[in-house]
Structures are given as C-alpha cells and as structure tokens.
C-alpha cells in the first residue's frame, strides 16, 4: 500500500468546528464527500469514492474560498431538508434541483449567507442527477484512510459510514471570515458545466480493445446507449444493442469462464468500461477494484463528471480520442477550475 499524503491544513479556517446543521429529512441518499477521495488503497479493495461530478464539486468549494479538500454533501435525485444551527455561508453546485431557503428560491452557483434557524429544502432537477451543498470551512467528519468521503458499502468515512438520516447533526470548520459579511461569489453561466439528456462521452481505447474487431468498435460507437435505472455510485449500466464478439475474444485461456467477455480477474478503476456479458458498464467512484469482465474502453477523466450527472433514461454517445487529446481535455478543465 502506498499511503496517501495527509490532508492539507484548512487555509483561512480555524481548526475547531461546531454543529452547523440538523437533518430534518435525509433525502434519497445524501452523503459527505470530498475531492479527490481515497487514493492509494486500490489493492485493499477500497475505492476512491468522492463526488460523482468532481467538476461541479470543485467549482462549488471555490465559491466559498474553501480549501480544495473541504468536504460537502452529495445529494442524489431527492434532496434533504436541513435546519441551520448557526450563521454560516453555503454554496450549491451541480444539478439545479430548485433549492429554497425558508420557502424562497435561492440561486445555484452562488455564495448564500445563512442565519441560525434557516431551513434549506429542495425540489426536483429536470436534468442532472447530483447536487452539492458546500459549507464555509468544509464539513468536519473524521478523516478515514486519508479522506472524509463516505463509502456506504463498507461503512467507511463520512458520518458513521452511512447516508444522512433524520436527527443527524453535522459540524463544519469555523472560518475567519465574518458570516454576515461573507463575500458573494458567483460562477457565470458559461463557466458552469452544461447539463443535458444526451451526453457525449469521450473514451480511450484499452485495456482490451485488441479483443474486439474494428467492426465491433464501430458498432459500439454508432449506438446511442440508454442509461439503465440500475445505475449508481458503483457503476452505470447501459442498454441499447446486442453486442457481438469477434473471433479474438473467443480464444479462451482455460481459466476463463464460458462467456467471451470473461477474463482472469485483474485490477479496474473509476472510468473502466466493462462488457459484463452483453451489458456495457462504466465503473464509477465506489467501484470494485478487481473484475473478471473485459474492458475494451476507458472513459476519459474529463468526461467522468458527465457520467456522474446522467439520469436513468438519458443517452450516451461515445467518441474515441487519443491519449494526448484526453490529457489536454483534463488540463483545460483544471485551468477553468484554477480561477480565484
């Protein structure tokens, strides 16, 4: 195991915390997450976790001048209802699920000043699957294996390793900035991630593209894939076409099971696109670290946030790009995140 570097101290924040919210309703699955999550524990079977849409999450932290590793809440589809216990500032990023403060609409992508007793609630998003609530200073939950991110399957990190429930209280670090005079920042519309129901996802070939013929790859690229309702933080399943397998994939080693998509168990990660039998599956932030299915493609880093924001019933079309272009896409994103 390679140990992860320790979290950087919270800049501009006093290292004490006090309860900031009480949970009145937990929502569908609201969890504490930080970016980038847990690094260096693949070989223990511990996934990275962290936000499904890292782009929105990082932009949101910047609205509060939070450190990059400040923890916030990830809302999936149905938001929570929260009561604030003290004055603070928050920001909302990701899918626009019609946030309200004391029944009054408040903006996404903007700093919002909060008084003790304020109540935050949500409606439903028309596009996008995940919304983030960021707190000035960041949420204070224990750092477990280098991260505050929740991995519910192993009851790890976050608040007791689980999603939020009614009655929970969360603390955030105090900041030096006076809450009532917190500077208001906004992310301009052009800088925000663009949400859709038809997403273009860029892929790299490999690790097992050699097991498909050119025709197989063409068939995969030309299909408009529908996101299955059996999609979550572990993986996104796709529906759309019957895959045929070329001659290459039928040369089995005796250790493999029957189906041509089966391999000897090997390491996989966030972004690996598996062929689970006939079902293409994109591994996401809580994915297993080993698989026995072949992976002809890997989703580019710069496209992962789109997968994380796709709703069941949305469509994916894929484009294959080369590694240099993929690295350039990611540095473009990093540049837009480097403002302020």
């Amino acid at each position: 195991m390679i140990s992860s570097p320790k979290l950087t101290p919270i800049n501009g924040a006093v290292q004490t915390s006090s309860p900031v919210v009480e949970v009145l309703k937990g929502g569908l699955e609201t969890t504490v997450q930080d970016y980038p999550g847990r690094e260096g524990y693949l070989q223990l079977g511990i996934p990275r976790s962290g936000p499904m849409d890292p782009k929105s999450f990082q932009l949101g932290n910047q609205l509060l001048q939070n450190p990059a590793d400040a923890a916030g809440l990830e809302i999936q589809f149905v938001g929570p209802k929260l009561k604030f216990l003290r004055a603070t500032a928050i920001a909302l990023s990701g899918a626009n699920n019609r946030p309200k403060l004391n029944q009054q609409a408040i903006p996404m992508w903007s700093t919002v000043v909060i008084k003790a007793g304020d109540i935050l609630s949500f409606g439903h998003a028309r596009s996008g699957a995940r919304t983030y609530i960021h707190f000035a200073g960041g949420l204070d939950v224990p750092v477990v294996m280098g991260s505050r991110s929740t991995f519910t399957r192993a009851e790890l990190g976050g608040l007791e390793g689980r999603k939020l429930e009614k009655g929970d209280r969360l603390s955030s670090f105090l900041t030096k900035v006076l809450e009532t005079s917190h500077p208001i920042h906004q992310i301009q519309p052009l800088q925000r991630p663009a949400f859709s129901h038809q997403w273009t996802i860029e892929l790299l070939l490999g690790p097992h593209d050699d097991e498909l013929s050119k025709g197989d790859i063409q068939q995969f690229i030309q299909t408009n894939w529908r996101v299955s309702s059996r999609s979550d933080r572990v993986g996104y399943r796709l529906e759309g076409a019957d895959l045929s397998f070329s001659h290459n994939a039928h040369h089995h080693s005796p250790d493999r099971d029957e189906h041509p998509s089966n391999k000897i168990d090997y390491g996989c990660h966030l972004g690996t696109l598996l062929f689970c039998g006939q079902t293409p599956t994109i591994l996401m932030v809580d994915s297993p670290s080993l698989t026995g299915y072949m992976a002809p493609f890997t989703v580019c880093q710069a496209s992962l946030w789109k997968v994380g924001q796709a709703r069941p019933g949305d469509y994916f079309s894929f484009q294959v790009i080369d590694p240099e272009t993929a690295l350039r896409r990611q540095s473009d994103i990093n540049r837009t995140l480097a403002f302020g």
């Binding site: 790299l204 070939l205 490999g206 690790p207 097992h208 080693s253 005796p254 250790d255 000897i264 090997y266 390491g267 996989c268 990660h269 972004g271 690996t272 992976a295 890997t298 989703v299 580019c300 880093q301 590694p323 993929a326 690295l327 990611q330």
Partner: peptide, 16 residues
C-alpha cells in the same frame, strides 16, 4: 495495456 490516462495494466502471462 492502456487503461485510461492515468492507469497502465501490465499483463505478465496468459493463464493463472
């Protein structure tokens, strides 16, 4: 074997 921009899969043999 390339496995995205930040992973490399090194395959050492064909069978267990």
């Amino acid at each position: 074997r390339t496995s995205g921009e930040r992973h490399l899969l090194v395959e050492l043999g064909a069978s267990v």
